[in-house]
Simulated assay, not measured.
Amino acid sequence: MELFVDLQIASENQADLPSLTLIEQWVCIAIDAGSSKTRKEAELTVRIVDSEESQQLNGDFRAKYKPTNVLSFPFQNPPGITLPLLGDLVICKQVVEKEAMEQNKSLNAHWAHMLIHGTLHLLGYDHIIEEDAVEMESLETKLVLQLGFPAPYNEQE
C-alpha cells in the first residue's frame, strides 16, 4: 500500500517526537489491520499540537473543554467520488507525554498506541458502545503487541 502522511508539527517543543518513518509505520499497520478492504493507497494528516490547540478543538468539536490525547476527523467522500483520503489526526504532545509517564509506558509505545487508536477511528471504529469498545481495544492491543510494545490497556483504564 502506498501511504502519504502529511505531518504537521505545531508544537513549540519538538523534542522527543517520533520520526515520520515511525508514524508512517504505526499508521500503516492500523490501516492494514483495520480496513475492511485492501487499499492501494491512503492519505491522512497527522498534526502534533500543544495543549492550547487541543483544548480549543476538543471544545469546538466535542464540547469537552480540556486537551485530549488524540482527535480524529474522518474525511467523508462526496457521493460518487472515491479518494484515498482518510482524514486528520490531531495529537497533543503534552497529553501523550503525561499519559505515558502516568501509565509507566515508553513514549514510543504511547505514541504508537495513539496513532493506531486515531487511525482506527478514521476507519470507522469507535468505543462508545461496550461491544464496539471491546473490538477496537482488542485490535489495538494486537497491533501494539505486534510492534513489540506492552499491551496498551490495563484494569485501571
Rank of each mutant, 00 (worst) to 15 (best):
M1Q: 09
E2N: 14
F4L: 14
F4D: 13
V5H: 11
D6Y: 12
L7C: 07
L7M: 12
L7S: 07
Q8P: 00
S11W: 03
S11H: 14
E12W: 06
E12G: 13
N13V: 10
Q14T: 15
D16C: 08
P18Y: 00
L20P: 01
T21E: 15
E24F: 03
V27C: 05
A33G: 08
A33Q: 13
S35A: 14
S35R: 06
K37A: 09
T38E: 15
T38V: 15
K40P: 00
K40F: 11
E41C: 08
L44V: 07
T45A: 10
R47P: 02
I48V: 15
V49K: 01
V49Q: 04
D50S: 12
D50I: 00
S51K: 00
E52T: 12
E52W: 02
S54K: 03
Q56S: 06
L57N: 03
N58F: 05
G59F: 06
G59I: 00
Y65Q: 08
Y65T: 08
Y65G: 01
K66S: 12
P67H: 01
T68G: 11
V70T: 06
S72I: 04
F73D: 02
Q76P: 00
N77P: 11
P79G: 09
I81C: 13
I81V: 15
T82E: 15
L83A: 10
L83G: 00
P84S: 09
L85P: 04
L86N: 11
G87K: 11
V90M: 03
C92F: 01
K93S: 01
K93H: 05
V96G: 01
V96Y: 02
E97M: 11
K98I: 02
K98S: 04
E99A: 04
A100V: 08
A100C: 04
M101C: 04
Q103C: 04
N104R: 14
K105C: 06
S106Y: 05
L107W: 10
L107K: 13
H110C: 05
H110A: 02
H110I: 02
A112P: 14
H113N: 15
H113E: 15
M114V: 08
M114W: 03
L115I: 05
I116D: 07
I116S: 08
H117D: 12
T119A: 10
L120M: 14
H121M: 04
L122V: 12
L122M: 11
L122P: 10
Y125R: 09
D126R: 14
H127P: 04
E130K: 13
E131M: 07
D132N: 13
E135Q: 14
E135V: 15
M136P: 12
S138T: 15
S138A: 15
K142P: 02
K142C: 11
L143T: 01
L145M: 11
L145W: 03
Q146G: 07
L147W: 06
G148C: 09
P150Y: 06
P152E: 05
P152F: 04
Y153W: 14
E155Q: 12
E155T: 13
Q156C: 02
